[in-house]
Amino acid sequence: DEVRLHVNGHTIEFRGIDEEIFKILEEAAKRGADEEELRRLAEKLLR
């Protein structure tokens, strides 16, 4: 299960996240989070 999030012209792939987590990451990206911040956030949410 892989999703792709487009951030500042880059595509970031995440594996094993559900739609709810994806929406949180998408919102963070809209607020200016970079790839590293998004990955840290995803790790926290998946715990």
Rank of each mutant, 00 (worst) to 15 (best):
E36C: 11
I17L: 10
K23I: 09
E20T: 10
R4D: 04
E43C: 11
E35V: 11
L38Y: 01
K30Q: 11
I12F: 03
K30V: 07
V3F: 15
E35W: 10
K30W: 12
N8K: 04
V7E: 02
G16I: 04
R40T: 11
V7K: 01
D1L: 12
E26Y: 11
L25Y: 01
A28W: 13
D18I: 04
V7H: 04
E27D: 12
I17H: 03
R31E: 12
D34E: 10
F14H: 01
F22R: 10
E43M: 07
E2F: 14
R40K: 14
D18H: 07
R40S: 14
A29C: 15
G9F: 04
K44G: 07
R40D: 14
R39W: 06
R15L: 12
L45Y: 10
N8S: 05
G32Q: 01
D18S: 13
G32E: 01
R4C: 04
N8W: 01
E37L: 06
L25P: 00
E43A: 11
I12T: 02
K44L: 12
G9R: 01
V7Q: 03
E43L: 03
I21S: 10
I21Y: 05
A42L: 13
R15W: 14
A42H: 10
R31Y: 13
E13S: 10
K23P: 01
I24Q: 11
A33C: 07
R47P: 07
I17D: 03
R40P: 00
E27G: 09
D1F: 15
A33E: 04
H10T: 12
E19T: 10
E26S: 13
F14T: 01
D34M: 10
K30M: 11
L25G: 00
E13P: 03
V7D: 02
V7I: 12
R31F: 14
I24W: 05
E27H: 12
L45H: 05
I24A: 07
D18C: 07
D34N: 12
A28S: 09
A29D: 00
K44N: 05
L46A: 07
I17N: 03
H6T: 14
L46F: 06
L25K: 00
E26R: 11
R39A: 02
E43D: 08
L5W: 00
I12L: 11
A29Y: 09
G16M: 02
E27C: 10
R39Y: 11
A28T: 07
L46T: 08
D34V: 11
D34A: 07
I12C: 05
I21L: 09
I17W: 05
A29S: 09
G16C: 04
L45W: 06
H10Q: 08
G16K: 02
E13N: 08
H10A: 07
E35H: 08
I21H: 08
L38P: 00
F14S: 00
E43K: 07
G9H: 03
E37S: 10
N8I: 04
G16H: 05
L41K: 01
I21A: 11
R39P: 00
A33I: 11
G9T: 03
L45S: 02
R31P: 01
I21F: 09
F22T: 05
A29W: 09
L25M: 03
G32N: 02
F22H: 05
R39T: 04
I21T: 09
E26K: 11
E35K: 06
R40G: 08
N8G: 10
L5N: 02
F22L: 10
V7F: 09
G32C: 02
E20D: 11
I17T: 05
E27Y: 13
H6R: 05
R40E: 14
I12M: 08
K30S: 10
H6D: 11
F14W: 03
R47L: 12
R31Q: 14
D1G: 11
L46Q: 08
H6W: 02
E13V: 15
I24K: 08
I24P: 00
K23A: 08
D18G: 13
R39I: 14
V3I: 14
R15V: 15
I21V: 08
A33G: 04
R4A: 11
E13Q: 03
T11W: 15
I24C: 05
R47E: 15
L41D: 00
I24L: 11
R40Y: 12
R47D: 15
E19S: 12
E13C: 06
A29F: 09
D1N: 11
R31M: 14
I17S: 03
I21R: 04
H6Y: 04
R40F: 10
E20Q: 12
A42M: 13
E2I: 15
H6M: 08
T11L: 10
H6P: 06
L41T: 04
E20M: 13
L46E: 04
R4T: 11
K44E: 14
A29R: 03
E2R: 08
E37H: 06
L45Q: 01
L25S: 00
E13A: 14
E35N: 06
G16S: 03
E36D: 13
I12W: 01
D1K: 07
L5S: 01
L25A: 00
R4P: 06
V3E: 05
G16V: 04
E36K: 13
V3H: 15
I24H: 10
H10W: 04
K44M: 12
T11N: 07
E13H: 11
G16T: 03
K30Y: 13
H6S: 13
E19L: 11
K44W: 15
E43H: 08
E13G: 09
E35A: 06
D18T: 14
E27T: 12
A29M: 07
E26Q: 14
R40I: 13
R4H: 13
I24T: 06
I17C: 03
G9W: 04
D34T: 11
K23M: 10
I17A: 03
L46M: 12
E13R: 06
K23G: 08
R15N: 12
E36T: 11
E26W: 07
K30F: 14
L41C: 07
E20V: 12
I12A: 02
R47C: 15
F22D: 02
G16A: 03
V7Y: 05
G16R: 02
K44Y: 14
N8F: 03
L46K: 13
A33T: 06
A42T: 03
A42G: 04
E37I: 08
I24Y: 11
V7P: 02
L25Q: 00
A33D: 04
T11R: 03
A33R: 03
R47Q: 15
N8Y: 02
R39F: 10
E26N: 13
L38C: 01
E36L: 02
K44R: 08
V3P: 06
F14V: 03
E36V: 09
A33V: 08
E19A: 10
V3S: 08
G32R: 00
H6G: 02
L46W: 04
I24F: 09
L41R: 01
E43W: 09
R31K: 09
L45K: 00
N8E: 06
K23T: 07
D1Q: 08
E36N: 10
E2H: 12
L5M: 05
V7W: 08
T11V: 15
I12E: 03
E37P: 01
V3K: 15
R15S: 12
E27W: 13
E26I: 11
L46S: 10
I17R: 02
H10D: 04
K44F: 11
E26V: 14
V7R: 00
A29V: 07
I17M: 05
R39L: 13
D34H: 09
E35C: 06
I12R: 00
G32F: 02
R4K: 14
A28R: 06
E2P: 14
R40M: 13
K44D: 12
K23N: 08
E43N: 06
V7A: 04
L41M: 13
T11Q: 05
N8A: 07
H6C: 09
E37A: 07
D1H: 13
A33H: 06
D18L: 04
E43R: 07
E26D: 05
H10G: 07
V3C: 12
L41Q: 01
G16Y: 05
I21E: 04
K23Y: 10
E19I: 09
F22N: 02
D34P: 06
K30E: 08
L5Y: 01
A28H: 12
I17F: 05
H10V: 14
I24E: 08
R31H: 14
V3R: 15
E19P: 12
A42D: 00
R15C: 10
I21P: 00
R15G: 09
K44V: 09
R4I: 15
E19K: 13
L41N: 00
L45V: 03
R15Y: 15
R15A: 10
K30C: 02
V3T: 07
H10F: 13
H10Y: 05
L46P: 01
L41V: 05
L38H: 00
G32M: 02
L46H: 04
R31S: 13
R15E: 05
A29L: 13
E37K: 07
L45T: 01
I17E: 02
R31W: 14
R39H: 05
E37F: 14
L25N: 00
L5F: 03
E27L: 08
D1P: 04
F14D: 01
K23V: 09
A42Y: 14
E2Y: 09
L46R: 06
L45I: 07
L5V: 11
D18K: 07
L25H: 00
I21Q: 15
R47I: 15
L25I: 05
E35I: 11
F14L: 07
L41S: 00
E26A: 11
D1A: 08
F14M: 04
L41I: 09
R31V: 08
G16L: 03
I12V: 08
E2Q: 08
G9I: 05
F22E: 02
R15D: 11
E20F: 13
I21D: 10
E35L: 08
R47K: 15
I24R: 09
K44T: 11
L38I: 14
E2K: 10
I17Q: 02
E36W: 14
E26F: 14
E37D: 10
E27K: 09
K30P: 00
R4G: 06
H10E: 08
E19F: 12
V3L: 15
E27P: 00
E20S: 10
K44H: 15
A28K: 04
G32T: 01
A33N: 03
K23H: 11
